[in-house]
Amino acid sequence: MTGRRGFLAGMLATGLAPAASWADAGAPRWLSAAGLPDGGFVLCGIGAAMDLRFRIALPARGHAAAAHPERPEAVAFARRPGTFAIVIDCAAGRRKAELAAPEGRHFYGHGAFSLDGRWLYTTENDYEAARGVIGVWDADRGYARVAEFDSGGTGPHDIRRLPGSDTLVVANGGIETHPDAGRAKLNIPVMRPNLSYLEEGAVTETVSLAPDLHKGSIRHLAVSHGGDVAFGLQWQGGEDGPALLGLHRRGEAVRLAETPEGALRAMQGYVGSVAFAAGQREIAITSPRGGQVQIYDMRTAGFLRSEAVADACGVAPCPGGLIIASGTGDLRRIGRMPDRAAHPGLMWDNHLVAL
């Protein structure tokens, strides 16, 4: 792959080759950050057979990545509260640019591209004002920062684009933080999480949880092909909370999943990732704390089943069902074609990004 990447890069430099695609990066199906036994960190491309297609060094621990919709380019974000994001040319196997959070800001580990790939949107904390911000970066001008707008709440974490549009949905977790306090949560008694929908930099719809659920921090998102939004909660109270998965469609009320008490307790109040299965009829949430993967019915929001997977967090659709990444180095398919691949030299981080 290294020789092929070098040849391709040379051809592109002379203008003799067509634009690169994800096939030129080894045709990965998913991206994930991972830790190494020596303390280093990498971004990996994972193939359909759960094999590695590339591995590119990161300067520190990664969290999630945003994949460009047209070219083999990914933006790897630092774990919150990080201040860097690395743009990687995955075909050439090299860094293309580095984004630095503006003074007084930090990233939250997630970003999303516009429909045409021109703009990158990043979730950020304006920590002196306790204000959520969406940064706008021009991918065609070396990822220059060109604008910003309010996220519609405090502590924006995940951000997704609704299919076929440039409407953004943001998970405002509601938690105030400040670098001087490390990862301490400063406003738990009065936190107010919400989902905000944004169009052209303006909030067009906001959905909040009921007042008695205000300690349910909305952190991670998945969006179906039809525009349904699934969100995972991280409960900030002293108990497990009444629900850890919610569903929403624009213009409608939030639906909270119904979970048996024992299954809810097993998650230990924490959802690390959420994804729609390949058929769009089921939704999965993971808990690395509880070592659990739980599956819910999309139509009824009812609990279907659970599976114990040690340190499970990253989850994404795959043919026949879902793929799960574990901090132990395992990749596991669940569904109609169960399978497993071990990568003992890698500790998969929080998220699998489907390409």
Rank of each mutant, 00 (worst) to 15 (best):
G237K: 14
G238N: 14
G241V: 09
G241A: 12
G241Q: 13
P242M: 01
A243N: 10
L244V: 06
G246Y: 06
L247W: 11
L247H: 06
H248Q: 04
H248C: 04
H248D: 02
H248L: 07
R249A: 08
R250D: 00
R250V: 01
G251D: 06
G251H: 05
E252L: 05
V254R: 11
V254W: 07
R255E: 07
L256Y: 08
A257H: 01
A257E: 03
E258D: 08
E258H: 04
E258A: 04
T259F: 03
T259H: 02
P260H: 00
P260L: 00
G262C: 02
G262Y: 00
G262P: 04
L264P: 05
M267S: 12
M267F: 15
M267C: 14
Q268K: 08
Q268C: 02
Y270Q: 06
Y270R: 08
Y270W: 12
V271N: 15
G272Q: 03
S273F: 03
A275W: 00
F276Q: 11
F276C: 01
F276A: 02
F276W: 13
A278T: 02
G279P: 07
G279E: 14
G279A: 05
Q280A: 00
R281N: 10
R281T: 00
E282V: 01
I283Q: 11
I285Y: 05
I285D: 07
T286A: 05
S287D: 15
R289W: 07
R289L: 14
G290I: 13
